[in-house]
Design a protein around this nucleic acid. Structure first.
Lengths: 344, 344
DNA sequence: ATTAGCACTCTGAATTGGCGAGTGCTAACC
DNA sequence: GGTTAGCACTCGCCAATTCAGAGTGCTAAT
């Protein structure tokens, strides 16, 4: 059931054309395509075959053919050529990323913006998951009556904070003391191991403050994997430019789904196990995205994957371009995060 | 040029009706309205007068009338009655706000969600501006070669961080020492005064580190008023439900404008000088929002205004409801922030 | 001052009739 | 046998047309 060279060529031509035009492509268009010297009738025969094999579909008799998800899968796996980024595109990315970025949140936001600006699709970025980071500092800062702010800082320069309760009898000196002890004791400990370590090392001078320490640790653990999905989103409205979403209801459901973030969060989390993923149309589990394709990549510090980001577009997206952009971004984001944040 | 009681009554009836139906209201509908015992012909005469006075407009001959911005202004100033919140609505708000909120960002996000969920319009929230907060703690945490993270914590429990450069010859002990000195020296100093204070008190033991301290202060100052507008947005897609935005292009421009955040940021900043603002249609400076109304309120800790939030909807919005919601939210948000963050 | 009546206007929805793009099939061609 | 020209047919799309309904303004009567 695999295709001969000619069928492949025709299929590729159809897909390329459809990606550009978004409207069913007919036999005539392909027969005029450079390279083939075949009449439209011949192409028609081939197209009928391709349709039988499930690679093409017809919206209705007497329309051209459009590629099926199966066709896109084949295209992505075997015939797509990555499109190198143009100078202009690189300039766009640079413009977004070269601003003064002294905070991780800002980096994430600008990454999303750069991605959506350069691809014209919808971009999403999952901020770093701190699990694999190592602790650098813990600070307890007393606030008003019975409250304090826990601040944790990790090796890579990420800070998280949370308000916690403090026993009434605890002085601010003692909070300072505890901060110092915790920092010392757990310096360079993986963030996701702090919980167990604290549990096992609760003895000694810390024992009497057990309950309090537990609440501190719990607060920290909540921050490792943000429960409030903090996914950065950009260019959701780009989708409205594409004829696929000229139907108001489709547009509405798409935007609503995306605004909720939580689906994106799940997808990105799942995807952060693999360097790249491409999910086409029906391969998506969410009903919502059955006619979208989603391409993701991970970024990392050293070898440790930190988080991921991706592009959502119509199945008819420009896969070649998108892949190149993600590759480029993966590299620059990883560099940016491991070597330095732009403080100048 | 002021209106007699009957004209006022008719105008109010028209506005109330139009707010519900979004379609031009005709004389017949009003004449049937309870309270008036007038025939449609009489109403027509009055409507013609109201039109001449600029309170009504006709989309075209032989359509009903729709209220002008001027009419809404009158409505809001003189005839609107605030609609008390229903139990259901209060429940919705509670549901959003009662989650575990141990971080200011999360509070802001949930506030926006609650607002948009309960009003069905678009909600925006400007996170606290730290200018009026007082410093509680400064911590410099060494990261890799030549970098450190500055963390500042304010009285109200807000934390901000930024990556900065550190002179190569500075030890981590010295960073710790400087943290302690800075915290001590500027404890309880208004955030927006730190700059000048540092400039004037640079003498003594800190003098030799002048350049470094300047960069620390600069980083802190950048965080007081976030340049990356960090406005929380929720329910942008709610607008698509309203017939005003059934036109794709209108919807597109609205969503794009709103996604950019920066306009919202400006508006909210401007609005944060007043407890409440209502801006109707053409009163908006931005071309983009000429057929929206925007209602805002501020929240505060004690008497100090911290930030603001608001609702964007069609000019035909339910002003009474929106005002009540904002009042309610203003109170609960101010309480939440001044007394405690929900850590349980 | 109010109202009934009427002619007039305008929109929006439904219907219709080409036009054009594209197909599938058949018969001829190399 | 693979390829192609030719042709009848299908179907969506667009523009033009029609028609009902809602609403108006005006006038004359109450």
């Amino acid at each position: 059931m695999d295709l001969d060279a000619r069928k492949l060529g025709i299929l590729k031509a159809i897909i390329d054309e459809y990606i550009l035009s978004a409207s069913p492509v007919g036999s005539r268009a392909i027969s005029k395509h450079e390279g083939f010297n075949l009449s439209s009738a011949t192409i028609r025969n081939e197209m009928a075959d391709l349709e039988e094999l499930g690679y093409l579909a017809q919206p209705h008799t007497s329309a051209g053919r459009i590629p099926s998800d199966k066709a896109y899968r084949l295209y992505v796996d075997q015939m797509m050529q990555k499109a190198a980024l143009s100078d202009d595109e690189i300039k766009i990315i640079r413009a977004h990323m070269s601003e003064k970025l002294d905070e991780v949140e800002a980096v994430m936001k600008h990454t999303a913006q750069a991605l959506s600006a350069v691809t014209n699709y919808t971009a999403m970025v999952l901020p770093p998951m701190l699990a694999a980071n190592r602790l650098r500092h813990i600070q307890l800062v007393p606030l008003r009556e019975g409250r304090a702010l826990v601040v944790v800082v990790t090796t890579a320069g990420f800070a998280r904070d949370a308000v916690i309760r403090v026993p009434e009898d605890m002085s601010s000196d003692e909070l300072e003391r505890i901060s110092r002890i915790l920092t010392e004791r757990f310096y360079d400990c993986r963030m996701d191991h702090i919980g167990e370590r604290v549990a096992s090392e609760m003895g000694g001078e810390l024992y009497e403050r057990k309950a309090f320490l537990c609440s501190v640790v719990e607060a920290i653990e909540r921050k490792i994997e943000p429960e409030t999905p903090n996914v950065q989103l950009s260019g959701a409205t780009n989708m409205l430019h594409y004829p696929e979403y000229s139907d108001m209801n489709k547009a509405k459901t798409f935007l609503a789904a995306v605004e909720g973030r939580s689906m994106l969060y799940e997808m990105l989390k799942r995807a952060s196990k693999l360097e790249f993923t491409i999910t086409i149309g029906n391969e998506n589990e969410d009903e919502m995205f059955k006619d979208c394709s989603i391409v993701t990549a991970t970024y990392q510090i050293g070898d440790e994957p930190l988080g991921s980001f991706g592009i959502i577009g119509p199945t008819r997206m420009n896969y070649g371009k998108v892949m190149s952009v993600l590759e480029y971004m993966r590299r620059s984001l990883s560099e940016l995060l491991s070597s330095e944040l732009n403080d100048e």
